[in-house]
């Protein structure tokens, strides 16, 4: 993952702005959103440095796909788009 992301940010259904909240809260918010709507594509915004490692690690543990990671569109923190495990129909 490069600083700006190799490609344009993909579409998403839900936005979680977890900026200003520290580990493990952003990942817990991500897990809650995934539990509430397992089919949703979630955009997580976070500036906690631990998210850089823990979002991909959570995706691996919960069989989700980290579809995209890069700088947040407004330049504050990082953005992660997390998709359901299977390709959508």
């Amino acid at each position: 993952m490069t600083a700006s992301g190799p490609a344009a940010m993909p579409a998403y259904d839900v936005v979680l702005d977890e900026r200003g909240r520290l580990c493990p809260l952003p990942v817990i918010a991500l897990a809650r959103a995934a539990a509430a709507d397992p089919a949703a594509r979630v955009l997580l915004l976070a500036d906690d440095p631990a998210a850089e490692t823990d979002v991909p690690a959570w995706c691996a543990l919960r069989q989700r796909t980290l579809a995209w990671a890069g700088d947040a569109p407004d330049g504050r923190g990082r953005a992660y788009v997390v998709s359901p495990p299977l390709p959508e129909p």
């Binding site: 520290l22 580990c23 493990p24 990942v27 906690d48 440095p49 631990a50 850089e52 490692t53 823990d54 991909p56 690690a57 959570w58 543990l61």
Partner: peptide
């Protein structure tokens, strides 16, 4: 090695280099 335990609020560079979960 969690970030909340470090003065820097950075997770351990070891865990990050491994791509390991750093929370808890």
């Amino acid at each position: 090695g969690s970030s909340c335990v470090a003065d820097s609020l950075q997770p351990s560079h070891v865990l990050a280099a491994m791509g390991a979960l750093t929370q808890g």
